[in-house]
Amino acid sequence: MSEHNEDLPAFCHPVSTKLLFGVFFGLIGLTILTVATSALGTGLGMPPAFAFPLAMVIATIKAFLVCAFFMHMYWDKSFNVLAFLSSLLFVTLFIGMTMMDTGEYQPTIEAFDRNNLANVDVSE
């Protein structure tokens, strides 16, 4: 939807104002939706376990909109897109491995806390 004008150099892709405003209103709608589901969610009978994944899905849709249209990714070189998205892979790796590890030894810490904090005299 980038209006490609013959006079513009090949690397210049202005995005139409219509599309930009469309994306913006979409983003606002999603923001309102996510606040609303979080505020009323349980009231509307949504199971609480649902709320968080839903919020994240909405955030990801918003991120997709921003990336694709505001950031021109849709028209960008695929190498740039790949470079950008690869960062997410490494973040996942970082989070995944540390989470796996701390999750494993968490019970040890909790046991330690329970034993030690119970005996602590904090009254000074």
Binding site: F90, L93, M97, M100, D101, E104, Y105
Partner: peptide, 18 residues
């Protein structure tokens, strides 16, 4: 090289699986 950092932590209290 990004997948092996834990080999510096074998004796640190890192969990066995990892």
């Amino acid at each position: 090289g990004f997948l092996v950092w834990g080999h510096h932590m074998f004796t640190s209290g890192q969990s066995l699986v990892v």
